[in-house]
Design a protein around this nucleic acid. Structure first.
Lengths: 331, 331
DNA sequence: CCAGAAACTGGTATCGGTACCAGTTCTACG
DNA sequence: CGTAGAACTGGTACCGATACCAGTTTCTGG
């Protein structure tokens, strides 16, 4: 294996010093056109690739941005990451990701490992990190964005929306739409604290409005279309007279719709279904489903932008909340 | 801001040399129990976090694994990344990702940037990189895995399945199932070369079997449920007598099904729909759709494993193809 | 034509670890 | 009890870039 080409090789090939080569390779500042061309040509010729590791060590900051999400099989987080990626694209930063599987211990390890790369910033999901994790995040002035959730005080910046409000709004909207016998179907609530939070607030709001939840069906394990289908079947078996079901998310709601279609239940006339997220999946369903359209792409984008804006500060300027209100869609 | 805690600080606090501290912090080899404890305690006390940048520079290899995919909004790649993540979880490696948006130029930039981090390995999508990109990948003995596609010769390792075979098998299966008037619906074929390849082979196979494609509807832009729905509508308007439609993927097929349900077309009796991928999305649809279940999680996992296996080699051992045959599912 | 500023260039120290090697201490065994 | 070998320890030289500063050249204007 031919030894890796270094900047020194480029410099030698171009007949200039390492420093001049270094300056030439990033931005042309303070380098004569002649040397600039020579260095570029030399780099091209010998196939120089650069070494961000050395560069990062030297100026004590990397151009990595850490992204920590609970799951990747959930399309919601994939879309958030997509938004992050688009915002970062072209800035020379590079996203690094970690998946916690909704496990707080694991989140701690991941954050720690990421910090050891001295990233330019960190994006983590939710506001409910463990004590130890929060301590890590508070430590220095690194830009930290907590996404998805704004029901609380962020370490630095939070970008997202209030899960509480979202659930409350949906409850009110369904009541306004004339629904009275409402049920709930959800999955994975012990791990997905945001979904759990929505359920709680949804039930409270219904109660306050005088039409408490008639029944609910909750399962462990990841949410899925299949789970939505059979939980709906179970719930309707116990409460055939429901006129509305609120789901922990869209996938589950789609499963519910499939059940209804198989049993020829009129949706939404007889039974209205309400999901959460507003996925592409729903836009063309044969029967309309209510949902809360969450700005996932926006969240990713704004989170990344928040980091970029805070790169050169030396002090944190107090918790900042960036609220991106979701939008309710009824059939 | 308090200056970053370094290993030297830990060593000083523990009353040992930097070297002993270094050894103590990673694996206990060649360190007395007494010093091990002292160092660990000191690190804990002063909140030492470690610096992978310095470590990587020193031993000229990082524990980053680069992952390059064309898109993140496509759940297929999110699942592949999920598989990768699971495979490297606990090994101390860290995934870095880049998204090409199906753009070869961008892919080159991303690969280049990733190489500048001296990653432990690289996972890229497909076998159809540009000349320049391939040159980068060939350069040294870095483990490189090309995923999704095995119709060709990989730079190092490829993990996936033959898109050609998959399409051919589906064509044969549909004919065996008695279908004769078959159409095609697809999106984004100029960019998604794998989908384009499947379409091509599908059409060829039908032709060879004596029942050529009756018609097709192709659109630009990303594939989606919505696109599937209106393209299906358009195709059926031109060819009302089709008894089968093959789609570029499951999302499109789901859209097709929604159209059929809205117009009460009997699926699959009157019209059989065939997608591609076997997403969770399909498992509970009210009417069954044929599909090719692709092992996305497996691909991610095996790709990551392939890299881990090749970490300590010094030479590439010739192109290796890891074939993970997909499975056809008919209604 | 020259002083002073601006533009450019390169040497040296460093970033925070690890490899390597040369000690030093400890253990086992004849 | 002496000694070979194992177990442990620490000094020094890097890894490949960049910051900083000092020196050199080139450009101004008077």
């Amino acid at each position: 294996m031919p030894r890796k080409v270094t900047l020194a090789d480029v410099a030698a090939a171009a007949g200039v010093s390492k420093m001049t080569a270094s300056r030439a390779m990033r931005g042309a500042k303070d380098v004569s056109q002649k040397n600039l061309d020579k260095v570029r040509k030399a780099a091209q010729d010998i196939g120089y690739v650069g070494n961000h590791v050395a560069a990062s060590l030297s100026n004590n900051r990397s151009d990595l941005i850490g992204v920590v999400v609970p799951s990747l099989s959930n399309i919601v987080f994939a879309e958030v990451m997509s938004g992050i990626e688009r915002a970062i694209d072209g800035t020379g930063f590079q996203p690094v990701f970690g998946v916690t599987d909704y496990d707080t211990e694991k989140e701690y390890d991941i954050v720690r490992r990421m910090l050891s790369w001295r990233p330019a910033g960190l994006i983590v999901t939710g506001l409910d990190q463990s004590e130890a994790t929060l301590r890590l995040l508070q430590e220095d002035s690194l830009p930290v964005v907590q996404i998805m959730d704004t029901d609380g005080t962020p370490v630095d910046v939070s970008v997202g929306f209030s899960q509480d409000n979202a659930a409350e709004e949906m409850a009110k909207a369904l009541i306004s739409a004339g629904r009275r016998r409402i049920g709930y179907v959800g999955c994975n609530l012990d791990q997905d604290t945001r979904a759990a939070r929505r359920r709680m607030r949804f039930a409270q709001t219904l109660e306050a409005l005088g039409h408490p939840l008639v029944g609910e069906e909750i399962a462990e394990g990841m949410s899925s279309v299949a789970a939505g289908r059979w939980l709906t079947s179970a719930l309707l078996a116990r409460h055939p007279d429901l006129d509305c079901i609120y789901y922990s998310n869209d996938d589950m709601a789609a499963g519910g719709l499939y059940h209804c279609m198989a049993y020829s239940l009129k949706v939404p006339e007889k039974l209205m279904l309400a999901g959460f997220n507003g996925l592409d999946l729903l836009t063309s369903l044969p029967a309309p489903i209510a949902t809360t359209r969450t700005p996932r792409d926006q969240i990713g984008r704004r989170a990344a932008e928040a980091i970029l804006e805070r790169l050169n500060r030396t002090e944190r300027d107090g918790p900042t909340v960036i609220e991106l209100a979701p939008e309710i869609r009824l059939p």
